[in-house]
Design a protein around this nucleic acid. Structure first.
Lengths: 227, 227
DNA sequence: GAATAAATTAATGTATGCACTAATGTATTC
DNA sequence: GAATACATTAGTGCATACATTAATTTATTC
């Protein structure tokens, strides 16, 4: 839906526009390949072109849209190749995160930020609740990166998850049950706790690579060439 | 210098403004911590605030400036902690690149894109030409990432090199001679050619970690807290 | 009727103006 | 002289108007 934005508080319109557009892209309200003129976007939200422009510049740098000079803002479709790129980047960043954490002494509370989502995944699997599973999975991966304390690492992972979000959602219900995801996560946490950096990174790498392969073959099989 | 921008061709002013500002930041024409008003920036380049704004939004997302609502654009200083973060990210991305390449069969021409800069480094070292050495080093690392064909990986590495650029330059002449850099590069290329992904990634990791440690201790020693 | 040229439209890139508000300065009070 | 209230300034956020130019349509020629 995304009706007109209310000028609630001291939050700049450009910021609200950005948030709103981002939401709509991630949730497929604005679907891939769609092209919308700046004016239309402005009208849709009840703001002028200026904040729309600013939002779009940000979204473009974030990899979610392309600005095509006379044809409006194009919601960037994710091809299979894009997906491969994105997963490669995530693999690099996250497995490095696992490595970093393994070299640290994490507190019990910190470890729990990893184990709790993992248990939640297990539970969600039992109940066959894929959305809950996906959310918990996301929590785990996010916690992994957050715990490193490296803000840039976190920002990047968030950015790239954003790019992959639509595709992940589209395949959530047609993919095979992610049975060994939980096992992988447990193994990563174990390696981290044991301080085995190499192993933690390696397990996580393989986990991610498996995920990538599964995703790509799914996209190919279902001819999801552009999401 | 960076005098007024000429409206050369079909290139948008916002783009030229962005390029110009980015250059000036990387080359320390605009130095770290400096705060400049939108109006001033506009006057400096002979453009209105609109393109300046657009450029700044981009630069902010790129991590080069902060926009501080009533105090202008602040050239983001790089702290030691920032530097550590940046190197961690680069380590993750580049060592993954090495791993990816090792899993491929590279052509002779492709290999040469790695070996040539390495030889140039060696040569520059002999002549004690640090600038040339740095440029060749950069070429090597760039080629490594470019060869993967992963555009996102490349963009990220370029972005983070950008953030680290000032600090690298500032320390170029006070750092000890980078004697074993060449050896590391050769070893990485060897591992890649042998198809030993694990080893290629590992060597490159260690190469980067060494670089990071050297850089950080240098920054600490010279009290470069904000670059 | 097809092809080219001219004219029109429309979307963006840029400049500008206004309103809002944080920051600063001044005045008043005690 | 310090503190608070008030007035002033100045920078930005946003809307809007204008200029530019790609795209499209119409007109003209063969």
């Amino acid at each position: 839906m995304s009706a007109s934005i209310k000028k609630t508080s001291g939050v700049p319109l450009a910021e609200m526009t950005y948030q709103s557009l981002r939401e709509d892209i991630l949730n497929n309200v604005l679907s891939a390949g769609e092209q919308i003129l700046e004016k239309e976007l402005g009208e849709r939200l009840g703001v002028s072109r200026t904040p729309v422009r600013e939002a779009c510049v940000r979204l473009e740098r974030e990899g979610l849209v392309d600005i095509k000079p006379r044809h409006g803002i194009r919601i960037k479709p994710i091809s299979i190749n894009d997906m491969a790129e994105i997963y490669q980047v995530l693999t690099a960043l996250e497995s490095e995160a696992a490595r970093i954490l393994a070299a640290r002494d994490l507190s019990a509370a910190q470890i729990e930020r990893l184990t709790r989502p993992t248990m939640a995944m297990e539970q969600a699997m039992k109940e066959d609740d894929r959305e809950a599973w996906a959310a918990s999975d996301e929590s785990f991966h996010l916690a992994l990166v957050e715990l490193t304390g490296n803000q840039r690492l976190l920002d990047l992972v968030l950015q790239f998850w954003g790019q992959a979000h639509r595709a992940r959602y589209c395949t959530l219900y047609i993919r095979p049950k992610p049975t060994d995801s939980t096992r992988d996560h447990v193994a990563v946490v174990d390696a981290i706790c044991l301080g085995n950096a190499e192993k933690a990174a390696e397990i996580h790498r393989i986990h991610r690579v498996k995920g990538k392969e599964a995703m790509l073959s799914l996209l190919e099989k279902h001819r999801f060439n552009q999401l």
